[in-house]
Design a protein around this nucleic acid. Structure first.
Lengths: 342, 342
DNA sequence: TTGAAAGCGCTAACAA
DNA sequence: TTGTTAGCGCTTTCAA
């Protein structure tokens, strides 16, 4: 069992050649004779040499890897974005290194630091909730100053002129609400996030826009900002308690939508006669509930691909860094059983 | 806007001191006078210097980061394991770098190579499906030869004596099936993976064991190996077609279980009178379906913590590498509506 | 065709 | 208290 690590230096010593000869031979350089090449290659295969990536990257000042920072991994949507990014990146010869911020500012800062100081050539980020709460994006503005290639997706920092790929959340919220209105709903509630989460706030804007446009009145009893630190289910239960006449719910994510459905079943409410529900994000959950959930599809995979496309463009052509690019991925309504009326 | 990168060398030159003085000052070394320290620190803060992690790691031969390779991210279970691993690691001062194999052998090999040649001090892996199909684990045996700290979780390579944290899948399958038997089921089907996926195969073993022990006969019509490249739903539909007398289904994962429930609703089968369903993995899906799903909880978070605990132990005490450690995380039955009879 | 040497950015032993 | 130097493992230019 071998334990010491093998380096070019050791190979060179064993074979009585210089380090540069070994290095060149491994790159199949024409400078090296076939005989020497073979001798070196044979030996290298035998001992199972692997170049040290740290040294290579340090020297090359290029890593061919891209960093991704997401708030969490459990969300189907983020996983899809990552898959899309991975797909695009791998075709271009880049690898992906993924980290989680856990929605914490400090961890986001730490991972940004780790990745952008040598590990990766570019960074893809969806911003942590806590960074919005603190309204602190200085770890990103430093990167911008350094002209480090950086693209945001879905959750983008406020007040910074950056590259970003998002969906039109206002429009998405509008579409969802409009759909409920078209189906005849009279009292439509929204289950949304606290106001500092831009995606939730925007979907809420769309909700309000659709209601007002249709001549409905806004009712603050119907607008619930879910606090995830407490029991989500109890908060939804309270919504039902407070609003006996409720006939439709727009939930800004799959989780809230699925829980609403579950609670409705417990309350013996008939979908869609008594209640209609529409969610957001077309993940596995929406397809597998009974009844299945109508939703707004976000196309995470495409978002990841597009974000990576922009990032690689910024990496390969640094001059393009001067003009931040902003792309909006279209959403669309997916109608399923939870809003399908005869 | 600053664009060139700042290094110790440049700082030293600007301040007319040596590189090592700057380096020491940044570490708050007692060797450096307070005056010089202040001068350096002030300057460093002003220009926003960040050490190059590549250089630091190369020099230190230590990165304080751990690599994780998972088949995919969309599975709630893997996300939970990662969270557990992250939790333990961060308390010990380690960071996590996550990559996906996409269940592909080549990508798994590539990421193993990338991470273990400089980027990380240790590796946590759940093996790709394709590696089982090819029965090729040489990228791992090379690591073992090199005595690189390595711990597997959930899906472990066959025929290699390695550190691993798993659940007892045979026992899990047994518990699930036994539960259905206890509830009075007569014709119990299993929806499982192709035989080369060890976790599926083991759960199937437990299924058979429970049936035989209870005096049931094994019926190959009731054993379905799902091929995920084709429509899962159609395959489940076929199971129902073939077995009109079917009264219970054990699905080896949440996805198959949720789809079974959905199909049952479409066929107007009453849960639990006509059909009972039990799944595997206690994720969000199992809780949110209607009826909610009974399942075998795998405790992914604990698995991640334990795997990381073992890995860090191997890293800190290299001598422990000689004795591979194998830990089994207990599973438990979670009874919900899909098997709850009056 | 091969080798010497500089350098990527940093740490740390040793010298001044 | 500060600076010089060697070296982590590699690439690459230039010399032999």
């Amino acid at each position: 069992m071998r334990v010491e690590k093998i380096t070019l230096k050791k190979i060179a010593a064993s074979l009585n050649v210089s380090i540069s000869t070994v290095s060149k031979a491994l790159k199949d350089s024409h400078e090296i004779s076939d005989l020497t090449k073979k001798r070196i290659l044979d030996y290298v295969n035998e001992v199972g040499y692997r170049p040290n990536n740290l040294a290579v990257s340090l020297q090359r000042q290029r890593t061919m890897t891209i960093g991704v920072i997401v708030p969490e991994l459990v969300h189907h949507f983020f996983s899809r974005v990552i898959s899309g990014a991975e797909n695009y990146a791998s075709h271009a010869g880049y690898k992906l290194l993924i980290t989680m911020s856990n929605d914490e500012w400090e961890k986001e800062r730490q991972m940004t630091d780790l990745l952008t100081n040598g590990y990766v050539d570019g960074l893809l980020v969806s911003v942590a909730k806590q960074s919005f709460e603190k309204n602190n994006f200085m770890h990103f503005s430093t990167l911008l100053d350094r002209r480090f290639p950086l693209v945001f997706f879905d959750r983008t920092p406020s007040g910074l002129n950056v590259n970003k790929v998002t969906i039109n959340d206002v429009e998405g919220g509008y579409k969802a609400t409009k759909h409920l209105i078209d189906k005849g709903a009279q009292r439509i509630a929204i289950l949304t996030t606290p106001p500092h989460i831009s995606v939730g706030a925007d979907r809420e804007k769309g909700y309000k826009k659709a209601l007002l446009e249709a001549g409905y009145e806004l009712d603050s009893n119907l607008i619930f900002h879910i606090d995830e630190r407490a029991s989500i289910k109890e908060q939804i239960a309270k919504l039902f308690d407070l609003n006996p006449m409720l006939d439709a719910v727009f939930a800004v994510n799959e989780k809230y939508a699925a829980l609403t459905l579950k609670l409705a079943a417990q309350l013996n409410l008939k979908i869609t006669d008594d209640l209609m529900v529409i969610g957001f994000t077309d993940g596995f959950i929406s397809k597998s509930t009974t009844p299945s959930l109508s939703t707004i599809a976000q196309h995470g995979f495409e978002m990841g691909e597009k974000a990576m496309e922009i990032l690689l463009e910024k990496i390969e052509d640094k001059s393009s860094l001067n003009t931040p690019k902003s792309v909006i991925i279209p959403t669309n309504l997916v109608e399923r059983e939870s809003t399908r009326k005869p």
